[in-house]
Computed example of a mutant assay.
Amino acid sequence: MAIMITDECINCGACEPECPNTAIYEGGIEWNWSGGTELKEVEMEGGDVIDGKELQEPVSDEFYYIVSGKCTECMGFHEEPQCAAVCPVDCCVPDPDYEETEEELLDKKAWLHNE
């Protein structure tokens, strides 16, 4: 499953540089699919195709957040999610809304990085 950041976040920013997929953003900051990935275009659930550089709405305006579609739990990069490993308040936790198998996470990594 993807990782999420709870509202216990103290906005220290320790997690952001650790993410190999650039899936972590400061609260209020827009994000895009291409940042930290090889994605040029992304097909959305409804079938629309968007430019990977198109800015997306922040998931949170208050706290650092993780874009679940870009989170692979560091699978294929590290033994454990690096955001959780460096978080001083243990607010990087599994997101129950995005349960994925190891195979699904590795497939997502391959998709993100054109492997």
Rank of each mutant, 00 (worst) to 15 (best):
L105D: 14
G28V: 04
D95I: 08
Y25M: 10
I10H: 05
V67N: 01
E102C: 03
E18I: 07
E30N: 14
A110P: 06
V89F: 05
Y98E: 14
V89D: 05
V93A: 10
E26R: 07
G36L: 11
Y64W: 03
A84C: 05
E8Q: 12
E57P: 00
G27F: 13
H113C: 12
Y65P: 00
P88C: 04
Q82A: 04
E43I: 09
Y65G: 01
E99A: 13
E104P: 09
L55R: 09
E73R: 05
E103D: 14
E73W: 06
T72K: 00
I29W: 11
P17R: 11
M75R: 00
E30T: 13
A110K: 12
Y65W: 02
E100D: 14
E8F: 09
Y25F: 15
A84V: 02
C87A: 02
Y25V: 05
I50P: 08
S34E: 15
E99V: 14
P17V: 04
A110C: 08
G13N: 04
P94Q: 13
S60V: 00
F63M: 03
Q82W: 01
L112I: 12
S60Y: 05
M75V: 03
M75E: 08
V86P: 05
V93W: 12
I50L: 06
W31K: 04
G69F: 03
D48F: 14
K53D: 15
A110T: 13
G47C: 07
G28C: 05
I29F: 11
E103N: 10
Y25W: 15
L55G: 11
C92Y: 07
S34K: 13
W31Q: 01
D90H: 07
P17T: 07
K108L: 15
K108G: 07
L39T: 09
E57Q: 12
I5S: 05
C12N: 00
D7I: 06
I29E: 15
G52T: 11
Q82N: 01
E54S: 06
K70S: 00
E8M: 10
E26N: 04
C83S: 00
T22V: 11
I24M: 08
W111A: 10
K108W: 11
G47R: 07
Y64H: 04
N11V: 04
D51A: 08
E115D: 15
W31M: 10
V93K: 11
G36Q: 08
V93E: 13
E115P: 12
L106V: 14
T101F: 06
C83Q: 02
G52S: 07
E26K: 11
E100A: 12
S34C: 13
P96K: 06
Q56N: 05
E57Y: 12
P20T: 10
F77L: 00
E104Y: 12
D51Q: 09
T37G: 07
C83P: 03
C19F: 12
C12E: 03
A14T: 09
E80R: 00
E16A: 14
N21G: 08
L106Q: 15
C74G: 01
E104M: 12
E41N: 15
G69Q: 01
N11K: 06
D95N: 15
K40E: 15
E73M: 06
C87Y: 03
P81Y: 05
D97R: 07
A85F: 03
V42W: 15
V59K: 02
C74M: 00
E62M: 03
G76L: 00
I29G: 02
V49W: 11
Q56I: 03
W33H: 12
N32G: 14
G36T: 05
Q82S: 02
I10K: 14
